[in-house]
């Protein structure tokens, strides 16, 4: 168990591509931190630098009290779970799990005991003598987890470990992984492109965009006060509506197409801005703002209405018992649920 500290970490690949811009943050002992962002934003690069699989171009990485920049991956006392499981195809499940221990000079009886214990925890006891090719995707995933936990590492690293599973299994494993980490109390860094995974699993989320950290915060903070339009539209499904508008008075903004919205504008701002409204922060059939519904999407518990508001694309989500059809209906915006972002850089005002 350990705290992980990144100080001025920066990554430039040998071909000159800057995959991670200079960043610093601290992961507390026992914390579950999720790195989330779209594909290619540098999540894996960051994780692999922590693992030691990728050189750190600049900066200092500490695991516990130790600077590990130049420490071999095997000597960092970490365990990693890969997206495609990366099991050793020629070893049995038991051997797969025990391999890392064997190399640490632990006695055979002790290894067996640890493997048995982990197998029991993961319901793998009946499969210990099988080869990975004789297991289902979910079972392979468990073996990969088992390989990580028998080592009792200071730090778990996960690189999209659930992406290859089907939706149902993914939801189930999500809960299991989280429960396991809580029980063991091991610090964890978890990479995913799936905002649902990030929201449901994380103690804290780090949102990455194009090699840069956009925001660090608890799931609640990220959702309720997104630091930028990028975070606002990436976290949450359906994404937040972002409208081009101009501050017209301190009680109103005017959309670019001329429609006036009754929202209290931020004090320090004037001129063109971006207005963000989450789809669930609207009430149908009240107010004066006309919403032109073009498509209704049934989600079971919810109903999504897609259309335009003052000529700009807009979505509203309503409860399942709320009847809705296409056509123009008035909507009212929940007071205080409006976010403002700069038109220049997309950051929160």
């Amino acid at each position: 168990m350990a705290q992980v500290a990144l100080e001025g970490i920066h990554k430039v690949y040998p071909n000159g591509f800057e995959a991670v811009q200079t960043c610093s943050f601290v992961i507390q002992d026992g914390e579950f931190v999720v790195l989330v962002g779209p594909s290619g934003c540098g999540k894996s690069t960051l994780l692999r630098m922590i693992a030691g699989l990728e050189d750190i171009t600049e900066g200092t990485l500490r695991i516990g009290d130790r600077v590990v920049n130049d420490v071999d991956p095997a000597d960092r006392n970490i365990a990693m779970v890969f997206q495609n499981y990366a099991l050793y195809p020629h070893m049995t499940v038991a051997k797969n799990m025990g391999y890392g221990l064997k190399n640490r000079g632990i006695s055979k009886t002790e290894i067996d005991a640890k493997v048995q214990e982990a197998a029991k925890m993961l319901n793998l006891t009946d499969y210990l003598d099988r080869r990975p090719s004789q297991l289902s995707g979910g079972q392979r995933q468990r073996v990969a987890m088992g390989r990580a936990i028998v080592r009792q590492p200071d730090l778990f690293l996960f690189d999209e470990p659930l992406s290859n599973l089907d939706a149902k299994l993914r939801n189930q494993m999500r809960i299991e992984v989280r429960a396991l980490q809580r029980r063991l109390g091991t610090t964890a860094v978890y990479v995913t492109h799936d905002q649902v995974e990030a929201m449901t699993m994380a103690d804290r989320i780090i949102v990455l965009n194009g090699g840069r950290i956009e925001q660090i915060g608890t799931p609640k903070e990220i959702y309720s006060t997104p630091a930028s339009t990028f975070v606002a539209s990436f976290m949450g499904a359906p994404p937040m509506n972002v409208l081009n508008a101009t501050v017209s008075s301190d009680k109103h903004v005017t959309l670019d197409e001329g429609l006036e919205l009754p929202v209290a504008a931020p004090a320090a701002s004037s001129g063109p801005i971006l207005v963000g409204i989450r789809p669930e922060d609207l009430t149908l059939g009240e107010g004066t703002t006309p919403f032109d519904v073009q498509i209704v999407e049934e989600l079971g518990a919810q109903r999504l209405l897609h259309g335009t508001l003052g000529g700009q694309a807009f979505s509203v989500s309503v409860n399942k018992d709320h009847e809705a059809g296409t056509g123009t209906i008035p909507v009212s915006i929940t007071p205080g649920a409006v976010h403002f972002f700069s038109r220049e850089d997309g950051f929160r005002i």
Binding site: G52, L53, P73, A74, N84, Y99, N103, R147
Partner: peptide, 25 residues
């Protein structure tokens, strides 16, 4: 697969042993 070699890299710090335990098989 690259990830299998990387898993071995995390499991074992001896390049010689990694070769005979994982790569060669």
């Amino acid at each position: 697969p690259r990830s299998v070699r990387e898993a071995a890299l995390i499991d074992n710090n001896s390049g010689f042993r990694r070769f005979w335990d994982v790569t060669f098989p």
